[in-house]
Simulated scan of single mutants.
Amino acid sequence: MNKQVHVQDLGLKDYKETWDFQETLFQKTVDLKIKNRREDSEHETPNHFLFVEHPHVYTLGKSGDMSNLLVDEQQLAEKQAKFYKINRGGDITYHGPGQIVGYPILDLNNFFTDIHKYLRLLEEMVILTLSEYGLKAERSKGETGVWLDVGTPFARKICAMGVRASRWVTMHGFALNVNTDLGYFDLMIPCGIKDKAVTSLNVELGQKEVDVTKVKRKLLNHFEVLFEAEIMKEKTSA
């Protein structure tokens, strides 16, 4: 099993360009798995982890409800935001500057073949990272992602998640609000959940800005331990 994970930080990059790049990496891995099976060979499949920051964009998952986007095309344009229907699970999500988006493109045959466990470990990675900032983050029953003050009237989401998997290869991932403009969440019903708020790390810490590079480093450290992975950092971007 190949547990090396190649990490790339793509910086600020258009959502559609990044989606296309994800699809390319994803398809190469799936194709190699098919070839291995057809030829009874054992070529190692690669694992990737992309960090990226997107310009303002709303994405709607396969099971999403279009009515959860509360603005029309003209209003989106006025907010300099884009909108895409995509092939991950979950409902509507916002991505924008100040948010850490992570896309692990892993062959789970290299780790474990359990999507439920995969999602729980991604959540745990975020929970452990936030604990380093003194925040008690948790899971909310029946709601994928990471939350604060679960079970109280003040429950609020700090990290959204939505993944796709085929032949045990994953794509899409998580979006952690760090220095995010939370006003953009007012233009939608986040993840289709009407009665809970959204927050970000800088708001919770009472800081104008949190060092995003340090947060990424902490996330990777926990990812490496939880997935028993070997992180291989790459300087090149897509």
Rank of each mutant, 00 (worst) to 15 (best):
K35I: 03
L182A: 13
L106I: 06
T180M: 06
T144G: 01
L128W: 01
E44V: 05
E123L: 02
V7T: 01
L187W: 07
S63F: 02
V71Q: 00
V225F: 11
D181N: 08
R139M: 05
A137F: 05
A160T: 05
L106C: 04
S166L: 01
L106H: 00
N36Y: 12
G89K: 09
Y58G: 04
V30P: 11
L106M: 06
V169Y: 07
N221E: 12
L128V: 03
A160K: 03
R217E: 15
T236K: 15
Q27F: 08
M161C: 10
K62T: 15
S63P: 07
L182W: 13
R88T: 12
M66K: 12
L106F: 13
D9C: 11
S67K: 13
T93R: 12
W19F: 15
G89I: 05
N47F: 04
K28Q: 15
S200I: 07
F154G: 04
G151S: 11
K79V: 00
I105V: 15
T152W: 09
L148V: 09
S140E: 09
G11T: 02
I231N: 09
T29W: 15
K141E: 12
H43S: 15
E53V: 12
R88H: 03
R37L: 14
A238T: 00
G98M: 09
L135R: 14
K194M: 06
L119E: 02
F26M: 12
T170Y: 05
K117V: 05
H43L: 15
P190D: 10
G90S: 00
C159E: 01
L10N: 13
D72P: 04
E42N: 13
G89W: 02
G162E: 15
Y58H: 05
Q80L: 04
T129C: 05
L201F: 10
E224N: 12
A81I: 00
L201W: 15
N179D: 05
N68T: 11
G183M: 03
S131R: 08
N109R: 10
Y15D: 15
R167N: 07
I231M: 10
T113Y: 04
N177I: 02
I92S: 04
E23A: 14
E230Y: 02
T180N: 09
T29S: 14
L201P: 11
A160N: 09
L121V: 08
N36W: 07
T129Y: 09
E23M: 15
L70Q: 08
W168R: 01
N87L: 07
M66L: 12
Q75G: 01
L187E: 14
G162V: 13
M66Y: 10
L50T: 03
Q75V: 08
V178C: 07
C159N: 08
K214A: 09
D211H: 10
V212T: 14
S166D: 06
S131P: 05
L106R: 02
T129D: 08
V210D: 11
N110R: 04
E228K: 14
